[in-house]
Amino acid sequence: MNVQRAYQTAMDEIAFSETELHRLKQRLHRASEEQEEFQMTHTIKKNHVLRPLLIAALVLLVAFSAAAAVRFFVPKKLSDELQLDLSSLQTVVNLSDAAPGSVTTVQKTQHTGGLVITFEAIAKGKCFEENTWQSTDGGSVQDESTYAIFTIRSEDGRPFYGNQDGNGFTLPYQAASFGYNLLVHGYAPNASALIERHGIFNYEEDNVLYKAYDITDVLCFADQNPYIVVNDGMMVSPDILRIDRHGDFYFAEGYTGIRALFDLQLDPSLADAQKAAQTLERDPMFTYDEIKALFAEEGQDYDTYVFTPAETESVQTAVPTTVPVE
């Protein structure tokens, strides 16, 4: 039996009828009109209603000192930890409702490729300000998911010009094309990226790009030092980052792109050995010895191999790019 043809034939039967398609189009036309009306109303409100309200709010605001506002909105310990960047983080994470343990501040900064990348905090999805974050692909912030929050600024204060992500998809907010990849200490970076991504959310204001990266899948590895790497392109590969025999990460010789490596500093008590084993079963990750053996099978030395763009694709794939159909 030709499996592909059989599957195609069966799937062809799953279809919108002409009537259903017609209804769908009608609904979308209505939605488009409503959206247009909303935008018009919103513009009018902005000009005639919002401005006086904003002025009134500003008058009220100056009655509070910045320090008082901090104490008013944020638990004291958190405000002490957050210090100067509090106002920016407050914009995107609802710290006032943050339950103990649901927001952990980190605030580690690295400079790379003209960018200042700060790992600001780890927060539960339920702490996020609604309607602030935009997903690139229709996903939504999940209350119980855990996110690593970053801010990115260009050193010269310029806005981010690129409007495409590494895969050619248009971003709702302008963003430079670099990727975030989760790693676990001791496992080769290319394989670590096998952990499925559940969403990257963006928000840009005053030339500061905020990014929230779903790290829920690595919580189970909390006792094994999970990291996050920021690099050129969407995926990390051995031509960018590798591990040595001790399991430590290092950037490959010859890689000159954006590079920032952050220890997620997760609470080891979050580790879940059973879940970690299941994750490894689903998406195997390779230790130094294993990745070295895999490269040896291809006649290459993992430690010294220098990739060329054409070779990168075939080595990364590790399986035939076409799979014969029986």
């Binding site: 998406d283 694709e313 794939t317």
Partner: peptide, 9 residues
């Protein structure tokens, strides 16, 4: 948004 190796596997 997955590595090709994952898709292949």
């Amino acid at each position: 948004h997955l590595p090709a190796a994952t898709v292949g596997t």
